[in-house]
Amino acid sequence: MHLAVLSGSVYGTADLVADEAVERCRQAGLEVSRIRPASVDALLEAAPDAILGCVSTTGMGELPDAFVPFFVSLQERFPLLTDKPFAVIALGDAAYGDTFCQGGEQLRELLLELQAVEALPMLRLDASETVSPEVEAEPWIDRFIAALETRT
């Protein structure tokens, strides 16, 4: 199975989590394309069987500035990803209440609109509770790999 891993980060933490996911997925035998910076052309060219997005939340629930062009392009071009499995790792701070992990939620909702299928419920990593989100994500990444393996 070929997996594309995308990330949108403010301070680099989401990129770090994405890089950890890439390593764990490769160790599990998946073919992985790390698409950075995220772009629709690169995603479509990679033609992955599955997608993993790692995205931070900034401001009042917005996507990181560097990730916005990808997100807007994906909305505008609207390439159908029918039945393509995906998952999202969202990073945020629960102190922000209603906007906690909203960047990840936006990506999740767009992928669902594009007819992709959520392979595993979104992982929400709280910056106020963890100092090593890449380590915190490992068990979830392993479950994501197992979910993809059941699809092959």
Rank of each mutant, 00 (worst) to 15 (best):
D126N: 07
W140V: 10
L110A: 12
M1T: 08
D65W: 04
V40M: 10
P37L: 00
I89F: 02
E76S: 09
W140F: 12
E109V: 05
Q106I: 05
G59V: 11
A42G: 14
C54M: 02
A50H: 06
M1Y: 08
V40I: 05
E76G: 05
P79I: 00
A14P: 00
L3K: 00
E136F: 01
A66P: 10
C54R: 00
A18V: 15
D19M: 12
D93K: 11
F71P: 09
C101K: 03
R108I: 08
G61P: 13
P69R: 04
L112C: 14
E138Q: 11
A94S: 14
D98A: 07
I35P: 00
L16T: 05
D93L: 14
V5M: 02
A46F: 08
L43A: 02
A66C: 03
D41R: 11
A47L: 06
A116P: 08
I145A: 09
F71K: 04
A116D: 07
L52E: 08
R24W: 02
S73Y: 11
L114N: 07
G8C: 06
T58C: 00
R36F: 13
P139E: 07
A4W: 05
M122R: 07
V10R: 12
L125Q: 08
T82S: 13
S39Q: 12
F71D: 11
A42W: 05
R143P: 07
L74I: 00
L120N: 02
L110G: 15
G8F: 10
E45A: 12
R143N: 03
A90T: 09
P133M: 01
L110E: 02
A90R: 01
S7D: 00
L80G: 06
T150M: 15
R77L: 12
Y96H: 15
D15K: 13
A94W: 06
L81T: 04
A28H: 07
F78I: 06
P48E: 07
T152K: 11
L16E: 10
R34V: 03
T130A: 08
C101N: 07
L30Y: 12
F86Y: 13
E113T: 08
R24S: 13
T152I: 14
V55Y: 11
A127W: 02
E45C: 01
D126P: 03
G29P: 05
V68E: 09
V135L: 04
A47V: 06
L63E: 13
E109Y: 02
F86H: 14
